[in-house]
Amino acid sequence: MKKITIKTSSNQYDVSIGKGLRYQVSDFLTQSYSQIFIITDSNVAPLYLEDVIESVQKDHRVNYTVVPAGEGSKSSRLYFDIMTEAIQSGLDRDGLIIALGGGMIGDLAGFVAATFMRGVDFIQMPTTILAHDSSVGGKVAINHPEGKNLIGCFYPPVAVIYDVETLHTIPFTEIRSGYAEIVKHSMISQPPFWQKLQNTNLNGPLNDDQLKQDLLKGIEVKAKIVEEDERETNIRQYLNFGHTLGHALEAELGYGKLTHGEAVAIGLLFAFQVSEKYYHITLPYQELYQWLLDNQYPFHLPQLSVAKLIKRMKRDKKAKSQKITMILLKELGDPAIQQIDDQIMTVWLEDFLRELNHH
């Protein structure tokens, strides 16, 4: 088992990565809780819920709720329903919430934990590769019809327990989705570990040791940034590399049409192009494009309104004034925050989408 400790100004917690950790959850509890309330989804429940219940029930009263799988569950209605269930189950301030699932569950359960009786402890148990990103750093949220994660807060877990065995049951789309975030981490870190990732082939069976290594590396990059800037006032924004267009595509197409990582992959390509134009430099655009192509990332988008995408990019939580705030690369491993006029951005985005669909 590998462990990374995340220390921020407000607290610290461990991220543990290993095989079979779902059978040892009680070993990670630092105190005794009045009750444990597990929040999971309809994909994960039949696979792992029983294992987690068994690992904690000898010392704790356990209740659980299962929400429908998919981004649609990160809604105010489901949030409120879970609150009702938690209250009715007798959960109190000395209880613990366990988020068992992918990023959607981590965000939703984390937001429930943050706001239930003004905050109870919670543990992240990610079951997807993508959640290596979302389970670390303490950002929790639900979606609003106007945009992703607009209702949320910073609320760190007391622990992150990452059982890599759970990654063998995720579909190929989820593997692809998660690796897009690992690729993102590889490009904003010094030194970049993109070269190493370039040889990763997602089409075959994943090797546990390599997976553990890639996840660790991704989490280390994120941890370092989060430790310096927990509340996203400055360099934590680097983690949004590829996300300005990515989030806009997700929202414009309707959540779930593209996975988060698939949208981010397209966003990474666009961020590469904008960086090249803005700084007059050359980045390994072709290599990234080829890697995404080889690993079957979807590039074909329906006809989209550029004006609407630009509007969404401005509405993204990070936007200021009539400019779009975007994370660019001065070179591989050297990210920067730039504001770009939306008229220039419109031209660049039109070119990019035209090119993408003609490839």
Rank of each mutant, 00 (worst) to 15 (best):
A131P: 02
V120S: 04
L49V: 07
E50A: 14
D41H: 08
G101V: 10
I39L: 02
R354T: 07
I142H: 12
I129T: 03
V112P: 04
N234M: 03
S55L: 05
V264C: 02
P46Q: 08
V183D: 09
R315S: 15
E71K: 04
F80C: 06
D107Q: 04
R22H: 11
M313K: 11
D341H: 14
L167Q: 03
M83R: 03
L21K: 10
L167H: 03
Y162S: 11
R354P: 00
A319P: 05
Q88P: 00
M1D: 10
Y255W: 12
R176E: 02
Q339H: 15
I327Y: 03
H300R: 14
Q322P: 13
F352T: 01
T30E: 14
V136D: 10
H185V: 03
L288N: 06
Q322W: 11
Y64N: 10
P302G: 07
D92P: 04
S42D: 13
Q88D: 09
D14T: 11
L268T: 10
S275C: 02
Q290R: 12
Q195P: 08
N63W: 01
N143V: 06
I38W: 08
E174R: 02
H358E: 06
Q286W: 11
F80M: 07
F172I: 13
I310M: 10
T169R: 07
G178W: 07
L292Q: 07
L292C: 11
T166R: 02
F272M: 08
K139N: 09
T30C: 06
P157D: 15
P191G: 00
Y162T: 12
H359Y: 00
M104P: 05
H243C: 01
I105C: 07
K212D: 09
I235Y: 10
Q286N: 15
Q290L: 05
I53G: 02
I53E: 05
Y162F: 13
Q190D: 11
S9A: 08
Q190I: 04
Y238G: 08
M125P: 02
L269S: 00
V221K: 00
P205A: 14
M313Q: 15
E71G: 06
S55I: 05
K58P: 01
V62S: 01
L130K: 03
K196M: 05
Y255C: 13
L329I: 12
F154M: 10
I129P: 03
G204S: 13
L91T: 15
V140C: 05
Q124I: 00
F299E: 02
G95I: 00
I53T: 05
C153N: 11
P157F: 13
S135F: 01
E165W: 04
A86H: 06
G18L: 10
A109L: 09
N201S: 15
R77M: 03
G147R: 09
N203D: 11
F37K: 08
L21I: 12
Q31V: 01
E276Y: 02
L249G: 07
I340C: 05
K318Q: 14
Q31M: 01
A180E: 07
R236W: 01
L211H: 04
N149H: 13
K224Q: 14
S26I: 08
V274H: 02
M313V: 09
M326S: 12
E228V: 13
L253P: 10
S32Q: 07
Y23L: 08
G119H: 13
G333E: 04
P298H: 14
L309G: 12
N234C: 08
Q31L: 00
P68N: 11
